[in-house]
């Protein structure tokens, strides 16, 4: 109560235009609160914006996460690009996970099929998820996956193994200073999240 009284005192004591002042204050506060809310939203908007940014620039070597159609008009036989495959298990997933071949030479525009071997060594069923990453990051935009086991989750029963395929081609537009391309898969245990 006394707070209100105090406040009133101040308002009286400002000057004769105190009511206009309060109106102005309220207006400004509302505008600023709007900015606050907008910036809070912007923080979250940065998530999709970041993805768009990554798509455009190939930042962090993110590749397409859904299948794309083969659209290359020809095969550029004059160029050869080395594509290397590496794998890594994140902590806590007891799978064997290896590329069947380590590297392959491709011509831009040429479609290739390679496979990866996985085996669940644990005594329980596990759902795995392979997360791809391409280096150099700029090449990610020119590496197109037509079919990939990384598009979906991979459930494997205890002790079972599987050969998983990846079909891809390298874009004809791949910048000429890129001659080696590395595709890495990190395997995660997502059993808990997927159930």
């Amino acid at each position: 109560m006394s707070i209100n009284k105090h406040k009133a005192n101040i308002n009286i004591s400002t000057n004769t235009t105190s009511s206009t002042n309060i109106n102005n204050n309220n207006k400004t506060v509302k505008k600023l609160l709007l900015v606050v809310v907008a910036m809070f939203g912007f923080g979250f908007a940065l998530v999709p914006l970041y993805d768009v940014f990554c798509d455009i620039t190939g930042l962090n070597g993110k590749t397409n996460d859904t299948a794309v159609a083969y659209t290359a008009s020809s095969v550029d036989k004059t160029r050869t690009v080395k594509v290397q495959f590496i794998t890594r298990n994140a902590k806590g997933i007891p799978w064997e996970f290896e590329p069947v071949i380590n590297e392959i030479n491709v011509h831009p525009g040429e479609m290739k099929l390679v496979s990866f071997y996985a085996k669940n060594n644990a005594s329980h069923d596990i759902v795995g998820q392979a997360v791809p990453s391409v280096s150099p990051g700029l090449a990610a935009n020119y590496f197109h996956k037509i079919e990939c086991f990384c598009f979906t989750q991979q459930p494997l029963s205890a002790g079972k193994d599987i050969e998983m395929s990846l079909q891809f081609y390298v874009d004809l537009e791949l910048p000429t200073d890129i001659n080696t391309l590395t595709l890495s898969y990190t395997l995660y245990d997502i059993t808990e999240k997927s159930s």
């Binding site: 600023l32 900015v35 606050v36 910036m39 809070f40 912007f42 979250f44």
Partner: peptide
């Protein structure tokens, strides 16, 4: 502050 503290709150 008004511009970036909400971003911190978001993150």
């Amino acid at each position: 502050l008004i511009a970036v503290m909400p971003v911190l709150a978001g993150v």
